[in-house]
Amino acid sequence: MKLQLIRNATLKLDYAGRTVLIDPYFAPKHSQPSFAGRSPNPLVELPVSIDKILDGVELVIVSHLHEDHFDEVAMEHVPKHMPIICQPGDEAEIRGAGFTEVSPLTDMATWEGLTLTRREGSHGLGPVLEEMGSVMGFSLEAAGEPSIYWAGDTVLYPPVTDVIRATSPDILITHSCGALWNGDLIVMNAEETIAVCEIAASSLVIATHMEALDHATIGREGLRRAAEARGIPASRLLIPADGEVLVLTRSATH
């Protein structure tokens, strides 16, 4: 399989002969409001053109409808006939934007040889959830490919730990920028990402959703230093740059 980090949470997967795009966020640099009062968002441009990102894409997965996961620019460019899988409750809004093949992932679904399983996420803990709303992660499996657990916009809390222990994914993808909303942590920070590496001792962890938004509290180098200080080597925690392509096999993840 090939995994390309585009920017923020946006990933392009070549997996079991299919090409999947996750959480397309195509806004130009500084075209959206600040989240933390430090800078307009996003902080960086896309590393490749939108046409190149969409080239070959057969399925789009949208974890939730925050503007940094499926923005207006992406809605304009993703073809309206493109199959989209989303969390339950978001399908009406996506269909309202003109998309015709929208399927909520209520539990488990199969698509062209891929098996997707919805996973719970918590975009923070406590009162902040009223503002953040619901999110989902998912597991992805196919014959001959590494199993993937894409945790999504979630903090580390018991349901995430339970999925890791129950499924032992070959690849575990985290959102690790330590974003804060009014002082509350809403995605994993360095400490929680390191804890994931320790819990998922047999998984390759890939940290994404970094250095793109102004409410982040940790960058790539800071996460790398913190992980190395805890004995997590670079071979177990990958922190790709925007645009970087990772080629991964089942054997290479162990």
Score class of each variant (00 low, 15 high):
M1D: 07
M1E: 11
K2L: 12
L3W: 00
L3C: 01
Q4Y: 05
I6Y: 03
A9V: 05
L11W: 00
G17K: 08
T19V: 13
L21Y: 02
L21A: 05
I22M: 11
D23H: 12
P33L: 10
F35S: 12
A36N: 13
N41Y: 11
N41C: 14
V44K: 14
E45R: 13
P47Y: 01
V48Q: 11
K52V: 12
K52S: 14
D55A: 15
D55T: 12
G56A: 10
E58H: 06
S63F: 00
S63Q: 15
H66R: 15
F70W: 11
A74H: 04
M75V: 09
M75N: 06
M75Y: 03
M75H: 02
H77N: 13
H77V: 00
V78E: 06
V78M: 07
K80D: 07
Q87L: 15
D90S: 15
D90N: 15
E93Y: 12
I94N: 11
I94Y: 05
G98E: 08
F99V: 05
T100C: 05
S103H: 14
P104S: 08
P104N: 05
M108D: 13
W111F: 10
E112T: 00
G113P: 02
L114V: 02
L116P: 04
T117K: 14
T117Q: 13
E120C: 01
G121E: 02
G121K: 05
H123N: 11
L125P: 03
G126A: 04
G126E: 06
P127R: 04
V128K: 06
E130N: 14
E131M: 12
E131A: 15
G133I: 07
G133V: 10
G133T: 10
V135S: 13
V135R: 13
G137V: 01
E141A: 15
E141F: 04
G144M: 02
P146K: 03
S147R: 11
T154Y: 02
Y157K: 07
P159Q: 06
P159W: 01
V160H: 06
V163T: 15
V163Q: 11
I164N: 05
R165Y: 03
R165K: 15
A166N: 11
T167I: 11
D170G: 10
D170S: 12
L172A: 10
L172R: 12
I173R: 11
H175G: 07
S176K: 07
C177D: 15
G178C: 09
G178Y: 04
G178R: 10
W181C: 10
N189I: 05
E191W: 09
C197N: 08
C197Q: 02
C197E: 01
E198T: 12
E198G: 02
I199M: 11
A200R: 07
I206Y: 04
T208E: 04
M210T: 08
E211H: 05
D214V: 03
E221G: 00
E221F: 09
L223T: 04
A226V: 04
A226R: 12
E228L: 13
G231I: 02
I232S: 10
I232E: 06
P233E: 09
P233V: 06
P233T: 09
L237Y: 07
A241P: 00
D242M: 10
D242H: 13
G243W: 00
L246S: 09
L248W: 01
L248A: 02
S251C: 00
A252P: 00
A252L: 09
T253Q: 01
T253E: 02
H254W: 07
